[in-house]
Simulated assay, not measured.
Amino acid sequence: MPKRLDIRLIAPSGYVSDRAACLRGIERLQAAGHTLHGLDVVERVHLRFAGTDAERLDDINRLADPAQPLPDVAMAICGGFGANVLLGDIDYAGLAARFHDAACRFVGHGDFTAIQCALYAKAGIASLHGPMLVQDFGGTYLRESTWRQFWQALDDPRIDMSWACLEPQPDLLVEGTLWGGNLSSLCSLLGTPYLPRIHDGLLYIEETGEQAYKIERMLYELKLSGVLDGQRAILVGGMGGQRVSEYDNGYDIDHALERFRRVCGVPMLRGLVFGHGPDKWTLPFGSPGVLEVVGGTATLSALSRPYAPVKAAAPLPL
C-alpha cells in the first residue's frame, strides 16, 4: 500500500466533461488515504478550457510560491488542449528554485506533454508521464496494473519493466535519458525553446485519434528537424483511434510505423503499454534509463527518483 500523499490537482488544459468519472477518481484516491487539494479546478469551465488562461497558469505558478506548501504530487486532471498557451508565462526560475531539493512530482500525459517538456528544457525539472484523475483513476473499471505501477514509480527509486517486442528486433543495449510523450504535443514545440535538446535520448511517443498518415508525417517532422539525431531508441506506445478509409487502400498505423522504422535510423520498438488507454506504465521524464533487448524481449530500467535536479542522479549500471 503506498504511503499517504498530498496530491494537488492542476488543470492546464481541457475541462472535465465526464462528471461521474471525475468523482470516481476523487473518491478512489481519497479512499486510499490520500489528501486532495485544488478540488475547485474540476469545476472550472471557460470555452473548451478548464478556466481562463490566467487561472490555468496559476495552477502551475503557485507551486513556485515559497509561501505555499508543496504537495507530493501535482496531477493533471485531464488532457485536451491549452497547455501550449501557458508556456511563455510559467515561472521557470521560481519553480527551479523550489524543486531543487523537493520531492514533488508532476504527473500527466497527452496535452500535458508540453508542460513537461518546458519544465525540463527551461528549469531542469523532471516529471512522470502517467495517469491522470479523470480518464485513469476515474475510469469505470480501475486497472489494477495502472494503479500499482503508478505507486511503484512514486515509491521506488528504480523501476523495471519488460515486454515482448511486436516486430523482430535485433539484440540491443543502450542507455540514455528517458523523455517524450504525446506525439502531437512534441511536434507542436519544434523550433521553440520549450522542446528539450536531448542528445542521448530514449524517446517514447504515443498518440490517439490521429490518422495513420498524420502520425507518419509527424514522425518525419521529428526526423527532418534533427530531433532523432540525438536519440538512441524510440519506444512506441498506444496509437489507437485511427479510421481506415477506402482511399487508404489498406494503409493503416502498422504500415505507417513500419515504413518509418525502415528509414528513421534509430531502433524503434513497440509493445510497451503507455499513453492513452486504460492500461499504462508510468514512465519517468528526464531520468536516466537502460534499454536492453534480448531474443525479442525488451527490458527498460529507469531511475524514478530523484526528480530534481536530474543532473545529480547517479547513472544506472549497464
Rank of each mutant, 00 (worst) to 15 (best):
M1S: 13
R4T: 14
I7F: 13
I10N: 06
Y15W: 11
V16Y: 01
V16D: 06
A20V: 12
I26A: 01
I26F: 01
E27Q: 15
R28K: 08
L29E: 07
R48Q: 15
F49I: 01
D59V: 08
L70K: 05
P71H: 04
I77F: 05
F81I: 09
L86T: 07
L87W: 03
G94A: 03
H100K: 10
D101W: 00
D101S: 13
V107K: 01
A118I: 02
L128K: 00
L133A: 07
L142N: 05
R143G: 01
Q152P: 00
D160P: 00
L178T: 02
W179L: 12
G181S: 07
N182F: 12
L183H: 01
S185G: 15
C187L: 07
P193N: 12
Y194S: 04
P196H: 07
I198C: 07
I198L: 06
D200E: 05
K214D: 15
M218E: 01
L219C: 09
L219A: 03
Y220I: 01
L224C: 11
L228F: 08
D229T: 11
G230N: 01
G230R: 07
L235G: 10
G241H: 10
G241Q: 13
R243C: 05
S245Q: 10
N249K: 14
N249A: 13
D252T: 05
G265F: 11
M268S: 01
R270E: 15
R270A: 12
G271H: 13
V273E: 10
L283N: 03
F285T: 02
V294A: 09
V294F: 03
G296S: 12
T299R: 15
L300I: 09
P306N: 12
P309L: 13
P315D: 12
